[in-house]
């Protein structure tokens, strides 16, 4: 068998194992939260009778292990159960939220990834001159400011003062693509600013590393222009580390944007998860946790595989 297939299969098996381990961790984590779901649903208005009634109805009196395995086998069959708190089908609710999250992440990625790589290339081309310094300064500044503050600033100037885009990024089924894009303009801007620096710096560093090689000197001696050398000879050999950092940032765009969701009232997965953690809605928390873990592990696996494929030594073993 081709060694690449074996490598990929190994990665897949490892990822699956990792996922199961993650689900066990998530479950254990939800168990050590103080209070239980009945207490959290009823809040300050809990009375002993209503607590006992609710616990009985929600099946909270079963042992934790039974609940965990019941849920795991259900999840394997695509049945995530119903939310304890409002009785809604979890798969359906998550489907809606997940598509919103992916929609936002997609547009943020479409803008930020090419932009970051582009800026990285420009920074290398004009290394240590003013374009390089300007790009570094701006992106590093934007990553250093807390994201909610960038959000508030853009909200104040662009939504309140100029009125160009709405401050509430609420999207719905009845909206056209253009309306949706207008609604998410501000969060996309913030997310772009937040992830730009990391990817840009990595691109710059990876390519600069390659630029030290002898074959780059050869290319320069051949008479190629600066950009041609970078694009044709340096960039392909710097793909592996760049893909790694791009995937990390994509994963962040999917699983880590709860602050942006709250600031812009965006109906994504982050807020959904936090609400259910607060109410101790274990099935939902586990489902979200598992999906997040799957996204993270999946994207990292893609990064691994791309790195393998991008490496000629692995592609053509002796």
């Amino acid at each position: 068998m081709h060694p690449i297939i074996i490598l990929v299969a190994q990665r897949l098996a490892l990822s699956t194992l990792l996922l199961i381990a993650a689900s066990a961790l998530i479950f254990a984590g939800t168990m050590i939260l103080p209070g239980d779901v009945a207490q959290s649903i009823l809040g300050q208005s809990a009375t002993p009778e209503s607590l006992a009634n609710l616990r009985e109805e929600l099946g909270l009196n079963d042992p934790p292990l039974t609940r965990y395995f019941d849920w795991l086998f259900g999840a394997l069959q695509g049945d995530l159960g119903t939310a304890l708190t409002n009785g809604r089908d979890i798969a359906e609710s998550i489907g809606q939220r997940m598509s919103n999250t992916l929609f936002l992440a997609f547009w943020a990625a479409i803008i930020s990834v090419p932009l970051a790589i582009m800026l990285g290339l420009i920074a290398v081309r004009y290394k240590d001159r003013w374009p390089d310094k300007l790009i570094s300064a701006v992106t590093l500044a934007s990553i250093s400011i807390p994201e909610f503050l960038i959000g508030y600033l853009l909200m104040y100037f662009i939504a309140v003062k100029l009125g160009w885009f709405p401050s509430v990024a609420m999207i719905g089924d009845h909206m056209s693509l253009l309306q949706k894009l207008q609604a998410i303009a501000l969060p996309v801007m913030v997310l772009t600013l937040v992830v730009l620096a990391h990817m840009m710096r990595m691109t710059r560093a990876a390519i600069l590393n390659v630029m030290q090689s002898a074959y780059i000197e050869t290319a320069e001696l051949k008479g190629l222009t600066g950009f041609q050398v970078i694009a044709r000879h340096a960039f392909p050999n710097a793909i592996a580390p760049i893909v790694n950092v791009v995937m990390l940032n994509l994963a962040y765009l999917v699983v880590g944007v709860v602050v942006i969701e709250v600031v812009f009232v965006y109906p994504g997965m982050g807020q959904y998860l936090v609400d259910h953690v607060a109410k101790r809605d274990v099935p939902v928390v586990q489902a979200c946790g598992l999906i997040f873990a799957a996204v993270y592990i999946g994207l990292n696996m893609v990064a691994d595989i791309v790195s393998i494929l991008a490496n000629p030594r692995l592609r053509h073993p002796k």
């Binding site: 909200m155 939504a159 401050s167 509430v168 709250v262 600031v263 009232v265």
Partner: peptide, 19 residues
């Protein structure tokens, strides 16, 4: 009835006429 839990988001939404 729109859920606006964040205080700044709430005031910005009112100021920009979204609620």
């Amino acid at each position: 009835v729109i859920t606006l839990n964040d205080a700044t988001a709430r005031t910005a939404a009112l100021q920009s006429g979204q609620v």
